[in-house]
Write a protein that binds this DNA or RNA. Structure first.
Length: 483
RNA sequence: GGCGGGGUAGCCAAGUGGUAAGGUCGGGGUCUGCAAAACCUCUAUUCGCGGGUUCGAUUCCCGCCCCCGCCUCCA
C-alpha cells in the first residue's frame, strides 16, 4: 500500500508524493511552543505525533528537512517578563532550555532548525513579507498604526478550515480592536507598540512594534524551507486562524501553493476535556515524571492512540503504558540472551541447516505489517498490534525451544529497525552495587534453601524498584517501571 | 448556528460487505519452594440509536442521539 495521509485541506486520505522531483527530500514545518511557561503534555502529544511522522518518513527512505519555530515574543511572554520585571530574553530563556530538555526526555528527534521569532534575521524577513503584502494591496495600516491582512482580498481565506467568513462568530476570547480594522477577520501582521510592551519593540516602515504571530511562521518556513512545503503540522486548534493566516500571507507573497499536505493532530483530553493552560487542567511533563514515570513511558502513552483521535490522559493509561513497555523490555532481553548463545559458541558445528526444517520459528519478514500499518496515515494501533503479536509468537517459540539463536538475532534486528520509529526501547543498565549485593545474598539464601530469607530479600529489592525472578538460568534482576 | 473529530469488551484501541487485531485489568491453568515472567485459556452473538440497500452491514446510504474541539493570536 502506498504511503498516505489525511490532508486537512481536502479532508481526504491522499497518497503522499514529495515535491522533490527525485522523490527523496521532504520539507516539513511544525508549529512549535510559545515559551512563556513549561509546555504541557498536550503540547507534547503534538510534537510526538510529528516525531512519529518524521521517523516513519525516514524509515521509508525519505530525507526529512524539518523546521520548528520557537515563539519567544507575544502577549504572554511580554506579560510574563513584565510581571517578573526582567528583560524578555531573560524571561523566555529558561523555558526554551526546559523545552529542549523535555524533547530529549521524550526521545523526540530534533528538527533541523529551531528559528526564534526575535531573531533579527527573521524579523527582517517578516518585515519584507509585510511590505510585499502592503504593496499588493493585501495588507493595510490601520489608524491604530498596526498593519492588518485584508482577508477580503484573498478569496481562498477560510478554505482550509471550511469556514464561511460571513458566518464567523466572535467568541469574545480576544479583545476587539475591531473598529480599526476593515473586517473583523482581518488579522495583525505587525502590531504597533503600546505601553504594555515596555521595551519590547522593533523598528519597521510602519513605526515601532512587533510582528504578529502568524507572519512568524510564514517567514520562517519560507526562509528555511523555501516557498513551498510538503507537510505542515500542528494541533487542530491551529487550523483556524493560524494556518489559514499562514496560507493567506505566504501565498499572498509568492503566488504559489504554500503547503501540499496539512496534517493536524487531535487534542489531549483530561477528564474528557481539552487540556489547556487557560482551563488549568494540564500536566507538564515534569509533573508526570515526578510521579515516577519515565520519558519513554510517557512517550508510549501519548503516542499509542491515532493522532487524529482524541486521547484521554489518565493515570490508568500511564500504568498501562508501563506494563506494555515492560513486556517489550522483557521480550527484548530474552531475545538478546538467546542471540548471545550464538556468540558463545560461534564456530561449533558450522552448519546446521537442518534446524530450519524442524518446523521451527519463521524468520522475520522484511515487512510483516508494521510499516504498512504506519503507511496508512500513521496507524500506530495497527503497528503496535503487529509488534505485540510478534512478541507473543516469538515468546511462544522461545518457550518451546523452537527459536534458535540466529533466529533470535534476526528478530532482534527486526525490533531494532521498528524501534527506530517507536523509540520506546530501553537501555541495558548495570545493576547498582547495593542491588548487586542484595541479589548475591539472595542467591546464597536460595542455595541454602532458606526461603524465608530469600523472600525477604526479594521484598527488599522490590521496595527499591527492582524485581527478582528465578528462572531456569538462575536469578534475574530487572528494573520495573520508571526511569 | 457553521465546520471538524470521536462513539467497538471494565478501561484503552484496530478493523473489514461475510460475521470482531492488539494492549491493559480480572478469573482459571502450565511452570515455580512460593512468586515473577512467559505461554495456554475464559471475558463483545456484538460494534451509540432508528430506518434503508444487500443473500448478508459494525463496515455502504438516510435520519437522529451523545461526547470533544474550532469559529480571530491555544498543540
Amino acid at each position: 500500500m502506498a504511503l498516505r495521509f489525511f490532508n486537512t485541506y481536502s479532508r481526504e486520505l491522499e497518497e503522499f508524493h514529495p515535491l522533490d522531483p527525485a522523490g527523496h527530500e521532504v520539507k516539513v514545518y511544525t508549529c512549535g511552543p510559545t515559551v512563556y511557561s513549561h509546555a504541557h503534555i498536550g503540547n507534547f502529544r503534538a510534537y510526538l505525533f510529528e516525531d512519529l511522522l518524521q521517523r516513519h518518513l525516514e524509515l521509508r527512505g525519505f530525507n526529512v528537512r524539518r523546521v520548528m519555530n520557537i515563539t519567544d515574543v507575544d502577549d504572554k511572554t511580554i506579560r510574563g517578563s513584565r510581571a517578573e520585571g526582567v528583560p524578555l530574553e531573560q524571561f523566555t530563556s529558561p523555558f526554551k532550555k526546559a523545552f529542549f530538555e523535555d524533547l530529549d526526555t521524550l526521545l523526540i528527534k530534533r528538527a533541523d532548525f529551531f528559528p526564534e521569532a526575535t531573531d533579527p534575521k527573521q524579523i527582517a524577513a517578516m518585515i519584507e513579507m509585510i511590505k510585499t503584502l502592503v504593496a499588493r494591496g493585501l495588507a493595510y495600516q490601520a489608524e491604530d498604526k498596526s498593519v492588518y491582512f485584508r482577508i477580503n482580498r484573498f478569496p481562498e481565506y477560510g478554505r482550509l478550515a471550511h469556514f464561511d467568513l460571513a458566518e464567523l462568530r466572535s467568541t469574545g476570547r480576544v479583545k476587539s480592536d475591531e473598529y480599526d480594522k476593515e473586517h473583523v477577520g482581518d488579522f495583525a501582521l505587525w502590531k504597533a507598540w503600546d505601553e504594555e510592551d515596555g521595551p519590547v519593540k522593533w523598528e519597521s516602515p510602519w513605526g515601532s512594534g512587533r510582528p504578529g504571530w502568524h507572519i512568524e511562521c510564514s517567514a520562517m518556513a519560507t526562509q528555511l524551507l523555501g516557498e513551498q512545503l510538503d507537510i505542515h503540522c500542528g494541533g487542530v486548534d491551529n487550523i483556524f486562524p493560524h494556518h489559514e493566516a499562514e496560507i493567506a500571507q505566504t501565498e499572498g507573497c509568492t503566488g504559489k501553493k504554500f503547503v501540499r499536505y496539512w496534517l493536524h493532530c487531535a487534542h489531549l483530553l483530561v477528564e474528557g476535556q481539552k487540556m489547556s493552560k487557560s482551563l488549568g487542567n494540564f500536566y507538564t511533563l515534569r509533573d508526570v515524571l515526578a510521579k515516577g514515570y519515565s520519558g519513554r513511558e510517557v512517550r508510549y502513552a501519548l503516542m499509542r492512540v491515532h493522532y487524529r483521535a482524541p486521547l484521554n490522559f489518565t493515570w490508568e493509561g500511564m500504568e498501562e503504558a508501563r506494563q506494555a513497555i515492560g513486556r517489550v523490555d522483557d521480550w527484548v532481553r530474552r531475545l538478546r540472551e538467546k542471540a548471545e548463545e550464538n556468540v558463545q559458541r560461534p564456530m561449533s558445528n558450522v552448519q546446521r541447516p537442518i534446524e530450519e526444517e524442524q518446523g521451527t520459528i519463521e524468520r522475520p519478514q522484511t515487512s510483516n505489517g508494521f510499516d504498512e500499518a504506519l503507511d496508512d496515515d500513521l496507524n500506530i494501533s495497527g503497528a503496535l498490534g503487529v509488534l505485540f503479536e510478534t512478541i507473543r509468537e516469538t515468546n511462544r517459540a522461545l518457550d518451546l525451544g523452537s527459536l534458535d539463536s540466529s533466529a533470535a538475532s534476526a528478530w532482534l534486528e527486526w525490533w531494532e529497525r521498528i524501534d527506530r520509529v517507536l523509540a520506546i526501547g530501553g537501555e541495558e543498565r548495570a545493576l547498582p552495587p547495593e542491588i548487586e549485593t542484595l541479589g548475591e545474598a539472595r542467591v546464597q539464601a536460595r542455595l541454602a534453601k532458606d526461603w524465608r530469607k530469600s523472600d525477604e530479600l526479594r521484598d527488599e529489592l522490590a521496595a527499591r524498584g527492582w524485581e527478582a525472578r528465578d528462572t531456569k538460568d538462575g536469578q534475574k534482576i530487572t528494573r520495573r517501571g520508571g526511569t
